[in-house]
């Protein structure tokens, strides 16, 4: 018994050591970014874990000015915000119809949409389509692209939740004289709240972090989102890691806030549609 308890204690200590080791592996790069963002110009040719000689808060204002971050921030907010709203709205309506109809044909259409999670984008021909439709280098073009990219996963996620809402509710609402649109907006949509929030938060995160679409389809720098701005800034100030780190912090701050505020929707949200129970 005594040795068993000793083993248990040893196991707990080892487990906790492993946990701290893993946390350190993640936190060291984070600490590097945080510390170096405050260093002076000569101090941060490379990133070290040394404490800054003085805390240069002015790095942030320098970056905002030189990196034109106000415009980029608003751009990112516009792209991520609009595509999130559009994606969530269109996906929940589609998922609702797919889930409720459940005919052979509808199941096929559902599979067709969900396949979008897997199939890769052909950027070469997509460029052609963007040119033909005159959406290239426009903010609404990017919003439509992001909506197209996020729709399959959102439909997939919300689909699983629709089936949990009893069909009897729909029948009662129809008997009470609801039109199909009223039924969806007043009865079904409110009950999908947690699925819709999960899909929305993930969509916002993904579009905020996305980089490849603006790289292909936004040519003028005043339309760039944060990710493209930070990449461009990195190219210009390769030796000023204090400024790059400050830029990185400003780029990540909105996602970090969202992560802390909506942790329960983000963690687990991505497999929720597939893994039930």
């Amino acid at each position: 018994m005594v040795s068993g308890r000793k083993n248990k204690l040893l196991e707990t200590i080892l487990k906790n050591l492993l946990a701290w080791f893993a946390a350190a592996l993640i936190l060291i790069p984070v600490a590097l970014i945080l510390l170096n963002a405050f260093k002076g110009d000569g101090e941060a040719i490379t990133m070290t874990l040394e404490w800054p000689k003085s805390w240069n808060w002015s790095n942030f204002s320098t970056v905002i000015e030189k990196g034109k971050l106000v415009t980029s921030f608003l751009n990112s907010l516009l792209y991520a915000g609009c595509s999130t709203i559009l994606t969530v709205l269109l996906s929940s309506m589609a998922a609702y119809v797919f889930s409720r109809r459940r005919s052979k044909g509808m199941s096929l259409v559902y599979m067709y949409v969900v396949l979008g999670m897997v199939i890769p984008v052909n950027y070469v021909t997509l460029t052609k389509i963007m040119q033909i439709t005159q959406l290239n280098n426009t903010w609404y073009g990017i919003v439509l692209l992001y909506t197209a990219m996020q729709t399959p996963f959102s439909v997939f996620l919300i689909y699983g939740f629709v089936s949990k809402i009893p069909v009897e509710l729909d029948e009662a609402a129809i008997l009470d004289g609801c039109s199909p649109i009223q039924l969806f907006i007043r009865v079904v949509f409110p009950m999908l709240k947690s699925a819709v929030i999960t899909a929305g938060v993930l969509c916002f995160l993904n579009t905020w972090n996305e980089f490849i679409m603006p790289l292909y389809f936004l040519h003028s720098s005043e339309k760039w989102p944060m990710t493209l701005a930070v990449y461009n800034f990195f190219g210009q100030f390769e030796m000023s890691w204090n400024l790059i780190c400050a830029d990185v912090i400003l780029t990540c701050l909105p996602v970090l806030i969202l992560y802390i505020a909506c942790q329960k929707y983000i963690v687990g949200g991505q497999t929720e549609g597939a893994v039930k129970g």
Binding site: S91, A94, R101, P120, V121, Y123, T125, T133, A148, V155
Partner: peptide, 23 residues
């Protein structure tokens, strides 16, 4: 009638035009 197909039209259209057709 209760679950009209056009509810899914927006999602289908955008997904088809920007994801499937280029492929």
């Amino acid at each position: 009638k209760t679950y009209p197909w056009y509810f899914a039209a927006g999602a289908l259209l955008i997904y088809t035009v920007f994801s499937v057709i280029p492929g």
